[in-house]
Amino acid sequence: MTKLSYINGLTLVLLLSGMSTPAFAGSEDVVVENAWSRASIGVNRPGAAYMTVRNTGEDTVTLTGLTTPLAVMPQIHETKTNADGVSSMAPADEITIEPGQSVALEPGGLHAMLMKLQNPMIEGETFPLTLTFSDGGEVTVEVPILGIAARGPES
């Protein structure tokens, strides 16, 4: 099981236990910042979560998937808006993050799509979301649930 370490209020970052043994090639240096999500109405509609995934290490890391007890089918999706102004959403490919770089999961772009919610997402609560990487490592972040009309991690 993993251990939570809380950093400045809403930003809760979890690092893998056993960091001292470099069993993984890169993912132990991944930091997740500014995670947030919007409350849901019931469980029928999919939810979405946003965050910045930063690679502070010296190896390239590849984000391959998500798991969470909150949703049966969590997936990284990407929204695209074409030249005609039509938005569409599809599962994203694996996301590669170079050393020193970060990837933003933000409204209208990449996001953690939470399909088949097990429980309603209630404003003020949090839920754990685990990011899995190609080296076998995992990073779990505790995601705060904000209001349905939230626009970002501070709202």
Binding site: T79, P107, A149
Partner: peptide
């Protein structure tokens, strides 16, 4: 309303 990303974002904008 079953739109998790664009629609709540547009409505909040």
């Amino acid at each position: 309303t079953y739109c998790p990303d664009v629609c709540p974002t547009t409505l909040s904008d």
